[in-house]
Amino acid sequence: MSQIPFDQLSKQYLEEFLSPLGKVTRNLEIPGESKFVDIYFAPTVTPSIADLGILGRMVQTSCLLEPYRNAPRRTELRSCLLKLLWLQENDRRKAKSENRSLPELPQLWILAATIHQPVIQEVAGQLDRDWLPGIYFLPKLFRSAIVAIDQLPETEETLWLRILGRDRTQERAILEVLALPKHHPRRNNILQLLANWKVKIELGEIEDFSQQEVLMAFSQAFLEWEQATRQEGRQEGRQEGQRTLILRLLTRQVGNLSEETRSQIHTLSIEQLEALADALLDFSTVTDLETWLLNHG
Rank of each mutant, 00 (worst) to 15 (best):
I110A: 00
I110R: 00
I110D: 02
I110L: 03
L111R: 07
L111F: 04
L111A: 03
L111Q: 00
L111S: 02
L111G: 01
A112E: 03
A112G: 05
A112L: 01
A112P: 09
A112Q: 07
A112R: 02
A113C: 08
A113G: 15
A113P: 10
T114A: 15
T114Q: 14
T114L: 12
I115N: 07
I115Y: 08
I115G: 04
I115R: 03
I115H: 05
I115Q: 07
H116A: 15
H116L: 15
H116P: 00
Q117N: 10
Q117I: 12
P118F: 09
P118Y: 07
P118G: 07
P118N: 06
P118M: 09
V119M: 09
V119Q: 09
V119N: 10
V119S: 06
V119I: 13
V119R: 10
V119L: 14
V119T: 14
I120W: 05
I120L: 14
I120H: 01
Q121N: 12
Q121Y: 10
Q121L: 11
Q121T: 08
Q121G: 11
Q121M: 12
Q121W: 09
Q121V: 05
E122S: 14
E122L: 13
V123I: 15
V123N: 05
A124S: 15
A124R: 15
A124C: 11
A124V: 11
A124L: 14
G125A: 03
G125M: 05
G125C: 04
G125V: 00
G125L: 02
Q126H: 12
Q126Y: 12
Q126L: 14
Q126G: 08
Q126I: 07
Q126M: 13
L127H: 14
L127A: 13
L127N: 14
L127R: 12
L127V: 10
L127F: 13
D128A: 12
D128L: 11
D128M: 10
D128V: 10
D128Q: 14
D128W: 12
D128F: 04
D128T: 10
D128C: 09
R129W: 13
R129K: 14
D130A: 12
D130C: 10
D130I: 00
W131S: 11
W131M: 08
L132F: 01
L132A: 01
L132Q: 05
L132Y: 08
L132D: 00
L132T: 02
P133G: 03
P133Y: 02
P133F: 00
P133M: 02
P133Q: 07
P133L: 04
P133K: 06
P133R: 11
G134M: 01
G134I: 09
G134K: 02
G134N: 03
G134E: 01
G134W: 04
G134A: 00
I135W: 09
I135N: 02
I135M: 08
I135H: 05
I135L: 12
I135P: 09
Y136N: 03
Y136A: 08
Y136G: 06
Y136P: 06
Y136E: 05
Y136Q: 03
F137E: 07
F137H: 14
F137S: 07
F137C: 05
F137G: 04
F137Q: 12
L138V: 08
L138C: 06
L138P: 10
L138I: 08
L138Y: 09
P139I: 08
P139Q: 05
P139F: 11
P139V: 03
P139M: 06
P139C: 11
